[in-house]
Amino acid sequence: MAYIKIDKEKCKGCLLCMTNCPKGLIIQDEEINIKGVRAVSFKNNSECTGCAFCALMCPDVCIEVYK
């Protein structure tokens, strides 16, 4: 269907992607990234429609969307 790539090292852990994903496909990591922040990960499965809400809301252009 569709999927996204997240640049975990640029992510600042604001979670605006997570809270705006209509399917709840983004979760926050336990471990921290180079910035000392708990970045986010994409639960890659068939539900992603490529709506790009996550990418629209990301202040740091960390997300690429493939559809």
Binding site: K10, K12, G13, L16, L56, P59, E64, Y66, K67
Partner: peptide, 26 residues
């Protein structure tokens, strides 16, 4: 699958100094 969303050409691929969740980046 085609890439439908990525960094615009008019934007430099650098980390921005803005705070986490700041609207300036958007």
């Amino acid at each position: 699958l085609r890439k439908v969303f990525s960094l615009p050409a008019s934007m430099r691929d650098v980390a921005m100094h803005y705070c986490s969740g700041c609207g300036h980046g958007i």
